[in-house]
Simulated scan of single mutants.
Amino acid sequence: MSDSLDEQIRRLEQRVDELLALCERLREENRILRESQESLNADRASLREKNEQARSRIEAMISRLKAMENS
Rank of each mutant, 00 (worst) to 15 (best):
V16Y: 02
S71T: 13
R48V: 08
A60Y: 01
D3N: 13
R11C: 02
L22S: 07
R11I: 08
R31A: 14
E52N: 07
M61R: 11
E52C: 01
R31F: 03
D43H: 10
R55E: 15
E52G: 05
R57G: 06
R48P: 02
A54E: 12
R27D: 06
E29P: 00
S71W: 08
E35K: 09
M1A: 09
A54N: 12
R57N: 13
I9M: 09
I58L: 06
Q14V: 11
I58R: 05
M68S: 12
L26S: 10
D6P: 00
S63T: 10
E13R: 10
S63C: 06
E38I: 06
M68R: 14
E13M: 10
L47T: 03
A54H: 12
R10P: 01
A42W: 05
R57P: 01
D6N: 15
S46D: 11
S2F: 04
E38K: 06
N41M: 12
E13H: 02
Q37F: 13
E35D: 11
C23N: 13
E28R: 09
K50C: 01
K50E: 11
R55G: 04
A67T: 13
A42D: 07
S71G: 14
R57S: 11
A54Q: 14
R31L: 08
M1T: 11
E28M: 04
E24S: 03
E52M: 05
L5V: 15
L12A: 10
I62G: 00
S4C: 08
E35T: 06
L26Q: 08
R11A: 09
R15Q: 13
N70L: 15
L26G: 02
R27V: 13
R11T: 11
N51E: 09
L20C: 14
L20M: 14
N41G: 06
A67M: 07
L33G: 00
S46N: 07
M61K: 13
I62L: 05
S36Y: 02
L12G: 01
R15P: 00
R48W: 07
R15S: 03
N70C: 12
R10H: 11
E18A: 03
L33Y: 02
A60P: 01
N70E: 15
A54R: 11
E18K: 02
L12I: 10
L19Q: 01
R10E: 03
L19C: 05
E29H: 13
K66D: 11
L19A: 01
E7T: 11
S4I: 05
S63F: 06
L33R: 09
L26R: 03
K50L: 06
L47G: 02
R31H: 09
R31Y: 04
L65H: 03
N30E: 15
K50D: 11
L40V: 10
S39A: 07
S63G: 10
